[in-house]
C-alpha cells in the first residue's frame, strides 16, 4: 500500500513537471511564434521582429532545452522516489 502511495506521489510530481514543460512549449510556439506575435512586434530582431525569430528558430532551440530539462528533472525524481532503474 505504501508503495502505491509513493508511486502516486511520483506520478503527481511527474504530471506537474509535464504541465509546466508543455505550457512553455505552447507559449514559445503557438504564443510568441503565432498568436502573440503582434504584441511583441515592436521588438526588432535582425531585419524582422521577435515573433518571426521564435517561429523560425527560437522555438526549436527552446524545445531542445525543454527535453533535456525534463530528462534531467525526471532522473532526479526517479531517484527521490526510489523508482530508478
Amino acid at each position: 500500500m505504501s508503495d502505491r502511495q509513493s508511486s502516486n506521489a511520483y506520478w503527481q510530481a511527474n504530471l506537474r513537471i509535464i504541465w509546466i514543460s508543455l505550457a512553455i512549449w505552447a507559449l514559445v510556439s503557438y504564443g510568441f511564434g503565432i498568436v502573440l506575435r503582434p504584441l511583441i512586434a515592436s521588438i526588432p530582431v535582425g531585419g524582422s521582429d521577435l515573433g518571426f525569430w521564435f517561429a523560425q528558430q527560437g522555438s526549436i532551440l527552446i524545445f531542445i532545452v525543454l527535453i533535456f530539462f525534463y530528462a534531467w528533472r525526471m532522473n532526479k525524481l526517479d531517484r527521490e522516489h526510489g523508482v530508478e532503474e
Binding site: S21, L22, W25, S29, G33, I60, F63, I67, Y70, A71
Partner: peptide
C-alpha cells in the same frame, strides 16, 4: 516565408510530445 514556419515548429515540436508523453 513566415507563414510556412508551421513546418519548422510542427516537425520539431512533436519531439517534445514524444519525450514527455510517449517514448519513456
Amino acid at each position: 516565408g513566415y507563414d510556412n514556419s508551421t513546418y519548422l515548429m510542427g516537425w520539431t515540436g512533436g519531439y517534445v510530445l514524444l519525450a514527455l508523453l510517449l517514448a519513456p
